[in-house]
Structure formats: structure tokens, C-alpha cells
Lab assay of single mutants.
Amino acid sequence: MVYKIRDKETGKVYEVTIDEETNEITVYDVKTGKPVKTVNMTIEELKEAGYEVEPV
């Protein structure tokens, strides 16, 4: 599923895909559409880390 996340401190917005089964999150560069990095976190962990998470 695709989400937009926003860093509450910097205001930067990222587009991510989240595999609900493995909790693998792939972060994409919004301008190029290319993957930047992959992390292993849940949506709740993202929120605790200071991100706003919205489904696209």
C-alpha cells in the first residue's frame, strides 16, 4: 500500500510503500519516483519516530 509520510520536524514529505506482512517500507524520491532506501518498521513505529502517515 502507498502512503505519504511527513517529517514533523523538517516538513519533508516522502512517498513510501509498506508491505503489511513483512513491515518492509520502501522510501521513494517524490521528484524522480526512484527508491531511496528500504527500512523495516511498522506504521506505529513511523508515527513514534515523528512522522505523520497518510494513505494515498
Score class of each variant (00 low, 15 high):
24 E>A: 10
10 T>L: 02
56 V>L: 12
45 E>H: 07
27 V>M: 15
49 A>K: 10
42 T>D: 04
27 V>Q: 03
24 E>C: 13
11 G>P: 00
45 E>N: 07
36 V>I: 14
46 L>M: 07
16 V>W: 04
35 P>T: 08
21 E>W: 08
53 V>T: 03
1 M>P: 14
3 Y>D: 00
20 E>R: 12
14 Y>D: 00
23 N>R: 09
10 T>G: 03
1 M>H: 10
19 D>T: 05
54 E>F: 14
14 Y>M: 03
34 K>G: 04
26 T>S: 04
2 V>I: 14
3 Y>V: 04
55 P>W: 10
48 E>Y: 09
16 V>F: 08
55 P>I: 11
26 T>D: 01
12 K>F: 10
27 V>E: 02
40 N>Y: 15
13 V>Y: 09
30 V>I: 14
23 N>S: 08
52 E>L: 06
33 G>Y: 05
54 E>C: 14
4 K>D: 00
25 I>S: 02
17 T>Y: 12
2 V>H: 15
4 K>N: 05
26 T>G: 01
7 D>Y: 06
3 Y>I: 06
9 E>G: 08
2 V>P: 09
20 E>F: 14
35 P>M: 11
31 K>F: 15
42 T>E: 01
6 R>I: 13
10 T>H: 02
9 E>L: 14
23 N>V: 05
18 I>P: 00
18 I>M: 07
13 V>Q: 07
39 V>I: 14
24 E>R: 13
23 N>H: 10
8 K>L: 11
38 T>H: 08
22 T>E: 05
50 G>F: 05
16 V>M: 14
10 T>S: 08
6 R>Q: 07
45 E>P: 01
41 M>C: 12
17 T>R: 14
7 D>L: 03
53 V>R: 02
6 R>W: 12
44 E>K: 11
6 R>L: 08
56 V>R: 06
42 T>Q: 02
30 V>E: 13
24 E>V: 14
46 L>V: 07
8 K>G: 04
53 V>Q: 02
35 P>D: 03
2 V>L: 12
20 E>C: 12
7 D>P: 00
25 I>Y: 03
48 E>V: 09
23 N>P: 02
34 K>T: 09
49 A>W: 11
40 N>D: 05
34 K>L: 13
24 E>K: 11
2 V>Q: 12
35 P>C: 10
32 T>H: 03
26 T>A: 03
35 P>N: 05
44 E>Q: 11
47 K>Y: 10
54 E>M: 13
48 E>A: 13
20 E>M: 12
14 Y>E: 00
53 V>E: 03
28 Y>S: 03
6 R>D: 01
2 V>D: 08
56 V>D: 07
47 K>I: 12
14 Y>V: 02
34 K>M: 12
12 K>R: 12
30 V>F: 10
31 K>P: 09
15 E>V: 15
26 T>W: 07
19 D>V: 05
51 Y>E: 01
12 K>V: 12
32 T>G: 04
36 V>F: 11
13 V>F: 07
12 K>D: 10
1 M>I: 13
42 T>L: 02
15 E>A: 12
39 V>T: 05
22 T>V: 06
37 K>P: 04
2 V>R: 15
33 G>V: 01
29 D>I: 04
22 T>H: 12
44 E>V: 09
37 K>Y: 15
10 T>C: 08
4 K>F: 14
45 E>Y: 06
33 G>L: 06
28 Y>R: 08
4 K>C: 14
9 E>K: 15
36 V>E: 05
12 K>Q: 13
17 T>Q: 08
1 M>F: 13
20 E>A: 13
22 T>L: 11
31 K>N: 13
19 D>Q: 06
55 P>R: 11
53 V>I: 11
8 K>E: 02
40 N>S: 12
1 M>V: 12
33 G>S: 05
33 G>M: 07
11 G>Y: 02
38 T>G: 05
56 V>T: 09
50 G>H: 03
25 I>D: 00
28 Y>A: 02
26 T>M: 06
5 I>R: 00
19 D>F: 06
